[in-house]
């Protein structure tokens, strides 16, 4: 596991969990209620390739859509893909991790073997191949991204579970006759929660970056506007060659800011220092 320390002045500048939660909150608000803040409806078309002016704060794209509106509506898809892929990978990772850490023996060997084997498979090429065959909708994208990102979670959860499975409170609930399932739900999950949160957040960030990359390859849902797809459109429809920075920079900044905010929130419980794993 790699440990990354955030520079001290970034913290002073406000790169704190509170600030990041506020930032993320704004994005989540934009994702749930895009109507309330977007200047136009996403279906209205204006003259294409417009420069920023008082009517269109970020100009218009090749089809004449208002870019600010697109940006706000794209938040929803980007966040949905990240969060749901994160949830899926968290569920798989946690169940495999707890099962192998709690039961040990051959279950442990089998599950850790599967984890190691999945860990070695080169993710991005396999996802590309699957996406090329499936012509994905966002749900397929979520499933594929979730299915290929649970291994590190499983490892961490297993290590933590093995640490606490012999501790006093687990042993006493076992003596009282609670079932394994109840022990896992009531005793183990609350204790490993601080490990789960950073892993969950990192997976979300990773899934968002992967989604942006897949959109760029033309492998996301063509009907769904996400930040990655906006950049891909700007690339393939002449936004870059015309140097229309107001088209491709806002989604780019949104992706970076969200990723940075999400990772920082994930590090919230690490007492002194945060951890990060970018691949």
């Amino acid at each position: 596991m790699t440990v990354v320390y955030v520079p001290s002045w970034l913290k002073k500048m406000g790169y704190t969990p509170t600030f990041c939660i506020i930032i993320l909150g704004i994005f989540v608000y934009a994702a749930i209620f895009p109507k309330t803040i977007s200047p136009y409806s996403p279906e209205i078309r204006f003259s294409p390739y417009g420069e920023p002016d008082e009517n269109h704060m970020l100009g218009t794209d090749d089809m004449g859509y208002d870019i600010l509106t697109l940006l706000i509506y794209a938040t929803r898809i980007s966040l949905i893909i990240g969060v749901f892929a994160g949830i899926l990978s968290l569920c798989i990772g946690t169940s495999i991790g707890i099962a192998s850490g709690f039961h040990q023996g051959w279950i442990d060997d089998l599950m850790m073997g599967v984890t190691d084997i999945t860990l070695i498979i080169p993710k991005i090429p396999v996802i590309i191949l699957i996406a090329a065959y499936l012509h994905p909708s966002i749900w397929i994208l979520i499933i594929v991204l979730g299915l290929f990102s649970w291994e590190t979670t499983a490892r961490v959860v297993r290590a933590k579970t093995m640490q606490i499975r012999n501790s006093g409170f687990v042993l006493s609930s076992r003596c009282l006759g609670f079932s394994s399932f109840s022990i896992i739900i009531h005793d183990i999950i609350p204790v490993i929660y601080p490990v789960l949160l950073p892993k969950f957040m990192l997976t979300i960030a990773g899934a968002m970056i992967s989604e942006a990359s897949l959109s760029f390859l033309g492998l996301s849902d063509p009907m769904m506007e996400s930040w990655g797809k906006m950049i891909a459109d700007a690339f393939s429809h002449g936004g870059f060659i015309r140097e229309m920075w107001w088209w491709f920079l806002p989604p780019a900044i949104c992706i970076c800011v969200t990723v940075l905010a999400i990772t920082r929130i994930g590090m919230m419980y690490e007492s002194n220092e945060p951890e990060m794993a970018f691949k």
């Binding site: 002045w9 760029f216 992706i255 970076c256 940075l260």
Partner: peptide, 17 residues
């Protein structure tokens, strides 16, 4: 700190961006 911040920003950017 400057080096670390630049590195942090670059590595949280998708590579194609």
């Amino acid at each position: 700190d400057v080096i670390a911040s630049i590195a942090l920003v670059i590595s949280s950017t998708p590579p194609y961006l």
